[in-house]
């Protein structure tokens, strides 16, 4: 199963990465096992987002920068407005990084 490493940059991914890093540094964990955990995280996170999350969001804003490189879109928005069912958030500057969803289904 193909996965993205994209979600490692999220809060949960960063917390895991830091944890693994400390454990490897302390010699508690081998780097190989740390990588295995990260790969499993990629899978579990992707699966959880597909199966457990149902909410929808709309995003509007001024597109400051767009970039499409290596099948990854990067947008930097200014004065963006995020809306979902519950709330809405205003952000002065936000970065959106999106991988091609078709790559997972191949």
């Amino acid at each position: 199963m193909a996965t993205f490493e994209l979600y490692r940059r999220s809060t949960i991914g960063m917390c895991l990465t830091e944890t693994l890093d400390e454990m490897v540094s302390n010699g508690v964990l081998s780097p190989e096992h740390a990588i295995q955990v990260l790969v499993q995280f990629d899978k579990s996170m992707t699966e959880a987002l597909e199966t457990q999350v149902k909410s929808k969001v709309s995003i509007k804003g001024h597109l400051h920068t767009y970039r499409f490189c290596d099948n990854v879109w990067t947008f930097i928005l200014q004065d963006a407005l995020f809306k979902n069912e519950e709330s809405q958030e205003n952000v002065g500057r936000v970065k959106i990084v999106a991988c091609d969803s078709k790559l997972l289904t191949q």
């Binding site: 979600y7 999220s10 809060t11 949960i12 996170m45 992707t46 987002l49 597909e50 999350v53 149902k54 909410s55 929808k56 969001v57 709309s58 995003i59 509007k60 804003g61 001024h62 597109l63 947008f75 928005l77 995020f82 979902n84 958030e89 952000v91 936000v94 959106i96 999106a98 969803s101």
Partner: peptide
Amino acid sequence: DGIMHINNKDILFNKATGEFD
């Protein structure tokens, strides 16, 4: 299938539509 970290909140979404100028 997104994870947003905005204003110190984590918000997950299944779908999102964006309209930018």
